[in-house]
């Protein structure tokens, strides 16, 4: 395990794109989360909340809702680490370094595990940054909050991690099948479009069971709730992450992760 981490780290840390890409990802995520509060509220809002000029005033950073709000925003940027993951994975097919790794001594399982460790790295890094940013934002906007208040609604962090993990595993699975980064990305985009169309056709509740749906249903769009009178009056209770979708996401994530391994092992390493 330690060996695989060291190997993977040596591979990705030596490339400028890893630092630039990861830096850009974290910067965008932190910037949008910290600045989102000062964004102006536009559009037709309900009379009761018309007094709010910005999202900050509308309670974007209010505990415990902050975790729901910022994980929703943070997940916008998952495409950046996904691209980094595909870029490095595809380049190993391209440069035949995967084959050389296998010749040099790794088993296909070990090699694939090192890629999964890379995925976990990006997932945990993202959660860590969200937690860190969330704590700082929450403490400046909720001065009277006690420690316990911070932990309410933290299940959204789990949901956030799950959403990322699912998406990364989908990318790796597609990458195993299609090898080249450009083709992989196109296929994923096409797939997601087809899936949305399918979900419109078959409708709820069946559409919830399509592979990428559960993970996208984990963190619902928080703004409607934000501008509801109940929220404004502090009457609404904290929404929980739907456990059913969490488990379904986990199921699909595992399926893609093992599916990738299956196809990688089945084929010749060329």
């Amino acid at each position: 395990m330690k060996k695989l981490i060291i190997i993977e780290w040596k591979k990705i840390s030596g490339h400028r794109f890893f630092w630039i890409g990861t830096g850009l990802y974290l910067f965008c995520m932190i910037l949008l989360i910290t600045k989102f509060g000062s964004l102006k509220v536009t559009g037709n809002q309900n009379e009761a909340v018309a007094a709010f000029k910005t999202f900050g005033e509308a309670g974007f950073y209010k505990l415990p809702y902050i975790w729901h709000n910022i994980t929703y925003i943070g997940a916008f940027f998952k495409y950046i680490p996904a691209f980094i993951i595909i870029f490095f994975f595809a380049s190993e097919f391209q440069n035949k370094t995967m084959r050389q790794n296998i010749i040099d001594g790794l088993s296909i399982g070990q090699y694939y595990s090192s890629k999964i460790l890379g995925i976990l790295f990006f997932t945990f890094l993202s959660i860590l940054v969200i937690v860190f940013t969330g704590f700082i934002a929450a403490s400046t906007h909720n001065p009277q909050a006690g420690i316990a208040d911070y932990f309410k609604g933290m299940d959204y962090l789990l949901a956030f991690g799950m959403e990322l993990l699912f998406f990364f595993c989908l990318c790796v699975f597609a990458n195993v099948l299609f090898r080249k980064s450009a083709i992989t990305i196109v296929i994923i985009v096409v797939y997601l479009v087809i899936e949305s169309i399918t979900s419109l056709i078959i409708g709820k509740p069946y559409s919830d069971y399509l592979p990428s749906r559960p993970s996208s249903l984990l963190i619902t769009q928080p703004f409607t709730r934000m501008f509801q009178v109940e929220n404004f009056l502090g009457l609404e209770s904290v929404e929980r992450v739907p456990l059913r979708f969490l488990l379904l996401s986990l199921l699909y994530t595992t399926a893609f992760a093992f599916g990738g391994y299956f196809f990688l092992k089945k084929r010749d390493v060329t």
Binding site: K3, K11, N95, K96, R99, Q100, G105
Partner: peptide, 30 residues
């Protein structure tokens, strides 16, 4: 595999890493 040093067809290395870094990766694998 540890007792066998091998290259197949063309030399396959990480193009963006130095010769030394590439050998470090091989050493870690072995």
């Amino acid at each position: 595999k540890k007792k066998v040093g091998a290259l197949l067809e063309t030399p396959n290395f990480y193009p963006y890493l130095s010769g030394r870094k590439n050998l470090e990766i091989v050493s870690s694998i072995k």
